[in-house]
């Protein structure tokens, strides 16, 4: 039985390799299985090129492009359903389950993985990488160039600010994002100083409630809690967080988590909050 399966898989892989287009041809049936590649692909793909995105991309809480994603059939990043969609290119993240990606590759499907962005430069790089994966280099270059211009303008505006208030990006379970993260770069581009750096958390890490109280930042940027309750969020309602006197700036995850030009919207909202500080 297993011998038969191995042979049939090998035959299948061979057939797929024969019918798969040559590398120079743009892919015709692209399936994305990660929330972040979903959104970049939705922005850059040619009409009809993208055949499925993840269910996460259709959730307006997590995705900035839920409406666009709703027009496509959703997948749940499982090898079987992705394979059934007969893609000639699969887009995934470096963090997608390795077993799933290995199975797709074994079945002869081209898989392109994207690293998680940790800086605004990574966002431009991700846009260009998506462009070359989809054969849409010109569109991607235009989008990346526009993004870089916007980032430069935002940074110039932040540099001209009279002062840089100390802020903290505080997430569920007490995770603080330092300045060497994508969220940290967004915070810096909005003209804030990152208080997490003062306690050695530039790369991000757990910050206890006690340390938060001792840091006493001027603004705390909190996530918008998802539906349902979780102890991870209970921490953010602790009397100490409330009593800090810091301005709480709630932020929706959808503009933050992924390397797309939407991160600029988050930065613009933060800059607005900064200007309102005394």
């Amino acid at each position: 039985m297993s011998g038969f399966r191995r042979i049939s898989e090998a035959v299948l892989a061979g057939v797929l390799a024969l019918v798969a287009p040559a590398a120079a041809e743009p892919p015709e049936r692209v399936v994305s299985m990660n929330l972040c590649t979903d959104q970049l692909a939705l922005m850059l793909a040619a009409p009809g090129q993208l055949v499925s995105v993840t269910a996460f991309a259709q959730d307006p809480r997590q995705s900035a492009m839920a409406a666009e994603a709703a027009a496509l059939p959703a997948n749940h990043a499982r090898a079987e359903e992705v394979y059934a969609l007969a893609p000639d290119l699969v887009l995934a993240s470096d963090f997608t389950a390795p077993a799933t990606l290995a199975m797709l590759r074994r079945l002869g499907i081209a898989v392109e993985t994207f690293p998680a962005a940790t800086s605004l430069d990574d966002v431009a790089a991700a846009i260009r990488k998506m462009g070359s994966a989809l054969g849409r280099e010109a569109e991607a270059e235009a989008m990346a160039a526009r993004f870089e211009t916007d980032v430069a303008a935002l940074r110039a505006d932040a540099a001209a600010a009279p002062r840089h208030p100390r802020a903290l990006l505080y997430e569920a379970n007490g995770y603080a994002q330092g300045s060497d993260t994508l969220a940290g770069e967004i915070l810096a581009a909005a003209g804030f100083a990152n208080a997490a750096d003062e306690v050695g958390l530039a790369a991000g890490g757990m910050l206890s409630l006690e340390q938060l109280a001792m840091l006493a930042p001027e603004a705390v940027i909190l996530p918008e809690p998802p539906p349902g309750t979780a102890r991870g969020y209970e921490l953010l309602a602790h009397p100490v967080v409330q009593a800090l006197g810091a301005q709480a700036v709630p932020q929706s995850d959808r503009d933050w988590t992924c390397a797309t030009p939407h991160v600029l919207r988050a930065a613009a909202r933060l800059a607005e909050a900064r200007r309102k500080l005394p």
Partner: peptide, 20 residues
């Protein structure tokens, strides 16, 4: 739970903690 962090709580309820 619809909250993605809720499943992490299993450890707390099984083992107990006085944090925060």
């Amino acid at each position: 739970s619809p909250n993605p962090y809720a499943a992490q709580e299993i450890v707390f309820w099984m083992m107990g903690s006085l944090a925060d």
